[in-house]
């Protein structure tokens, strides 16, 4: 069993940081993305299986974004789905109703999500809110957004949802190509996370997660870094959500970005994969997607299962699983040498 000292530090990759070559830096990402790129070889025949693995990759992106906010700076944003939904519904409305070009609509919608996330961060930093209060404020935002989606039928289609026109003439509507588009997004997010991790900002993240006061005393602008993480992570969530809205069947409904569908799973995926780690989000989303698929006929049991995973992880393996996973990542890295 690894020592527990490393578990409190996010990005428990002290061993990785010492070596800084391009292979060590991006090797794990290349391996992971290459493995995921092979999946359609098996599944391209089955529409439903392509849907499942695409959703898995989408969730991988959500988890990386949430990992930047929560894993790096400890801000418990319980509005992952809402921020993605802001991007999704926002982009759909901007493209279909305001007639913006799809790409522009997506960027604007993602920026909106980033702005909202930034404001949430800024408010919690300004008011000195601790984890629990950030959690409650963002949860309130989450549920307000859900109610807004249900209430404003004219914009969102309410309970029945709405079909999105923009994107219908692109590869986003084709099963296999859209999978690769989302995989590319995941790869970009992983690279972004890695670059952040290796930069001075990543160093500051580690410092402020370790000991906020000490970080502040050694000159880290804690407030700035938190808001930065809030903005970057939220923008990533918004952009992923926008891409979701324009792809696949081109449908967004109240459950597409619902708290119970998105936040709950992202939380479990990150906890399972390893908070603050590079590949934890990919691993966690892959595992949970697989388990979901196995439990497809027992949909209600999924929730029981998530609950048990959460409890077991935080109760028993909090000091065991995460170092084990970074050990796994290290072995992956060595193999890629």
């Amino acid at each position: 069993m690894a020592t527990s000292t490393g578990t409190s530090k996010p990005a428990d990759s002290a061993g990785l940081i010492a070596v800084n070559g391009p292979v060590e830096t991006f090797g794990p990402i290349v391996v992971a993305v290459a493995l995921l790129a092979l999946l359609p070889l098996w599944f391209s025949d089955s529409g439903s299986m392509m849907g499942v693995i695409t959703e898995g990759v989408v969730f991988g992106s959500y988890v990386i974004a949430f990992n930047i906010i929560f894993g790096s700076t400890g801000q418990l944003f319980l509005c992952i789905g809402a921020l993605a939904g802001l991007g999704g519904f926002g982009s759909a409305i901007l493209a279909d109703r305001v007639d913006l070009p799809m790409i522009v609509a997506m960027v604007v919608a993602a920026a909106m999500a980033g702005l909202v996330g930034g404001v949430l961060s800024w408010v919690s930093v300004k008011r000195g809110l601790d984890t629990i209060f950030i959690g409650i404020v963002t949860l309130a935002f989450s549920l307000s957004f859900e109610n807004f989606v249900l209430g404003r039928r004219d914009l969102t289609g309410g309970e029945t949802g709405t079909f999105v026109d923009a994107g219908s003439d692109t590869v986003l509507r084709d099963r296999v190509p859209s999978y690769y588009v989302f995989l590319a997004l995941l790869a970009v997010f992983l690279v972004l996370f890695r670059l952040l991790q290796r930069s001075r900002i990543g160093w500051a993240f580690r410092a402020l997660r370790d000991d906020q006061l000490a970080a502040e005393l050694s000159g880290v602008d804690v407030a700035w870094h938190r808001i930065f993480a809030g903005v970057v992570g939220s923008t990533m969530l918004g952009f992923t959500g926008a891409l979701v809205a324009h792809s696949g069947r081109g449908f967004v409904g109240p459950s597409t970005f619902a708290f119970g569908e998105v936040d709950v799973r992202v939380l479990v995926m990150l906890a399972l994969g390893g908070i603050g780690t590079l590949l934890g989000p990919v691993l966690g989303s892959a595992l949970i997607t697989m388990i979901d698929e196995l439990l497809i006929d027992y949909a209600q049991l999924r929730l029981v299962f998530y609950g048990v995973i959460l409890i077991a992880l935080f109760l028993r393996f909090r000091h065991g699983l995460i170092p084990a996973l970074t050990g796994f990542a290290r072995r992956l890295l060595r193999r890629s040498d």
């Binding site: 929730l303 029981v304 998530y306 609950g307 409890i311």
Partner: peptide, 9 residues
């Protein structure tokens, strides 16, 4: 939260 999921499920 986990306990809630379990009961709900």
């Amino acid at each position: 939260l986990g306990v809630g999921f379990v009961i709900d499920g």
